[in-house]
Design a protein around this nucleic acid. Structure first.
Lengths: 222, 222
DNA sequence: GTGTTCCATACGGCTTTCCGTAGCGGGGTG
DNA sequence: CACCCCGCTACGGAAAGCCGTATGGAACAC
């Protein structure tokens, strides 16, 4: 099992809860807590320098930003940074995010060993994840694992999301066309954008583009 | 101080964190935890019946719903229900929601004794809130208290919100006009709706109606 | 009563979006 | 090579949205 664990969470109640649980229910010898990603990075570096590196990091995904200016702003970036410095470090993401779309892309993109959804059984699943990872397996929370392989009813790709994003920022179709052209995103013709939106409306049962964007916000795509 | 406390939270890590903190840092004699509002209500009733009522409830605002069907679905409703049965019960809402608009209306509507924002110092503020309430004061987290009295830069009324809501549901302006007419909401003319939207775009610095709705979703108005 | 202000609504032109059709070029197949 | 399919794009007419102006009615002041 893991001996030295770093818990990264901006909500102190959660961080404190995890730390207490780890101390009470696992054999962890040392548990440290960080409220900021940058703080976590510093603790990580210090541990490495003193030849007592962490062997597991448990981190949230998104962090509230406050007055402090920070280099690292999300759990993804943190995991990426840490794994670059210490490849054998294991990482568990612990987040409320349970929508397959988001999680899927995260797991593909970053080299995460476990994904646990904050929920009514979050702590229990956290322990399960640690057991699995200690045995060199990956762990995926049940909330998302059922979604992850079976194809989602309808899948939005990067392009669709960027499109919705630009719309939500106030660009009209002509402006988006120009924007895509400048960024070399294909297709960029107004006509194609129209067609794309039309297809999205059809597939998602939306009557207007505005509704489409509203749904995007609701489901967290944008 | 409080002796018997009920903690209502759907995320076990938070609930566990709060409970541990209460046991370690306060004089609370008894702390109980509930994952569902209904569960909390049952524990509350049982405590009342055995002549050992709670004197404080700390609850989240929004709860994930799962397979279980539930009567009470939000912290508001829970507080309302409990206070109706036991008026001297004190209630603290502990939520991530830190937007003044939302919190403002909540505090006005429900008889909440304290509002604490989940954040990096959430647990500390929770203790402060308990101290204040024990002295018969109200407590408002610093994150929102600065916003609460000074008038918001721009205030949306019921009409504006209903307008955005209908737009987010896919109605176009003509349909909304008809809808308002049917519901006897004034003004209902297409022209007036146009004007209203125009003003909103101006005041909120939005270029398109779509952006307006996106902002509404972001700020939690819709 | 007259004048003023405010607000809902109507109207007309202009722009944007919507939607069906068609051209065009690349990649695969016979 | 001819052929076909597919995706990007262009175009044009219809619908919706945008915006400035005008009308009409209610409330209020003089």
């Amino acid at each position: 099992m893991f001996e030295k664990i770093l818990v990264v969470e901006d909500l102190d109640s959660i961080g404190f809860g995890i730390v207490q649980m780890l101390k009470q229910k696992t054999a962890a010898r040392e548990v440290e807590q960080a409220l900021y990603c940058d703080e976590a990075y510093l603790k990580f570096l210090r541990a490495q320098q003193t030849q007592q590196p962490f062997d597991l990091v448990i981190t949230d995904l998104s962090f509230k930003r406050d007055h402090r200016k920070s280099q690292i702003n999300s759990g993804n970036e943190l995991v990426k940074t840490l794994k670059a410095k210490q490849p054998d470090l294991k990482a568990i993401v612990y987040s409320v995010e349970d929508r397959s779309m988001k999680v899927k892309s995260l797991i593909k993109k970053y080299n995460i060993d476990g994904y646990v959804v904050k929920g009514r059984e979050g702590l229990k699943h956290l322990i399960k994840a640690m057991d699995a990872i200690a045995n060199n397996q990956k762990y995926l929370a049940p909330e998302v694992s059922s979604f992850i392989d079976r194809k989602t009813v309808f899948e939005l790709d990067e392009y669709d999301i960027e499109l919705l994003r630009q719309l939500s920022l106030g660009l009209n179709q002509r402006e988006i066309s120009a924007f895509f052209q400048k960024k070399n995103i294909q297709p960029s013709g107004i006509s194609s954008i129209e067609k794309k939106l039309n297809r999205l409306k059809l597939e998602l049962n939306a009557k207007t583009v505005t509704q489409l964007v509203a749904m995007g916000k609701d489901f967290g795509w944008v």
